[in-house]
């Protein structure tokens, strides 16, 4: 594979993991626009640890731990809010994290931070596949059942004994951990981090991939992220128009397939039509 393809592959993997981070809270019905903030925590956390001489796996694990701890602490106050308030709170959190980093000279402030060590495409791919497997597994358990139930009707789920708050906090924390992982992988792939990159747009795209792929199955984010990361690459000829097209595609897609591309009934039809044809 060419260097360019590997580069795109690594970016795709980071997008997929970020999309799963967005998926965890969205699956429970809440929109988290703080993904970029947790990615920044992961990226800078692992960068600092690596630069302090830790081995790469340990520093990435440390960064994931940091992101999930912060996620856990933030989730309690943030999840008291609902709907739009929650979305705005997560967005504010993300902006605060980035703004704090930009104010810290020790983290390189606006000029960014060079990271010791480089992570190639293949290890990133294995980690990504692990993440996909993990989320697919979680979605197949009762925990996944509860997430869907809370998204469909939180009060209805509570009547059957589902402690909605706990489930939401767990999902939010796992999402934070995944975002941290995505950030750490990103930092080590490019060996350089820059706080400005972790802006609202990044969170927005993670959410878009997930919603366009569909929330109904744990494969939705994978489909969404893959399609919408790779399609613009294929459209490279029409370089400047590709994001115009992207915007239009989103609008049309929401009109035609508001539940996302990859729904349960889609899979059901696929499986039940096969034998007949």
């Amino acid at each position: 594979m060419s260097g360019y393809a590997l580069q795109i592959g690594a970016i795709l993997c980071v997008h997929v993991i970020a999309a799963y981070a967005a998926y965890m809270t969205l699956a429970a019905g809440q929109l988290n626009l703080g993904i970029a903030g947790f990615m920044a925590l992961g990226a800078y956390g692992s960068a600092v640890l690596s630069n302090a001489g830790w081995a790469m796996p340990q520093s990435i694990a440390g960064a994931v731990l940091l992101a999930s701890l912060v996620g856990l602490c933030v989730s309690y106050p943030v999840l008291r809010a609902r709907g739009i308030y929650l979305t705005i709170a997560t967005l504010a959190f993300s902006e605060v994290v980035v703004a704090l980093i930009l104010n810290m000279e020790s983290l390189g402030a606006a000029s960014g931070l060079v990271v010791v060590g480089h992570l190639g495409f293949w290890p990133i791919l294995w980690v990504t596949l692990g993440v996909v497997a993990l989320v697919v597994f979680l979605a197949s358990t009762r925990f996944g059942l509860c997430l869907t139930a809370i998204r469909n009707d939180a009060q209805g789920a509570a009547v059957f004994g589902v402690r909605t708050r706990r489930i939401e906090v767990t999902a939010f924390t796992i999402g934070a951990a995944l975002a941290g992982l995505a950030g750490a992988l990103y930092a080590h792939h490019f060996s350089y981090v820059e706080a400005q990159r972790f802006n609202v747009l990044l969170s927005t795209y993670a959410v878009l991939y997930t919603l366009l792929g569909g929330l109904q199955t744990p494969l939705g984010p994978l489909v969404g992220a893959a399609l919408f990361t790779l399609a613009p690459e294929l459209l490279r000829g029409t370089d400047e128009w590709r994001y115009v097209t992207f915007g239009a595609v989103i609008v049309v897609l929401m009109l035609l397939r508001s539940e996302g591309l990859f729904t349960r009934s889609f899979i059901h039809n696929l499986m039940h039509r096969r034998p007949a044809t």
Partner: peptide, 28 residues
């Protein structure tokens, strides 16, 4: 027309689509 349906994320995503569309149109 999606505002009345149960899923509040749909209109939000559509409006994001418009944001990306208009901004990049002007960018071009």
């Amino acid at each position: 027309r999606w505002l009345s349906t149960s899923d509040p994320h749909i209109p939000l995503v559509s409006s994001l689509g418009f944001l990306i569309f208009f901004e990049n149109l002007v960018l071009v």
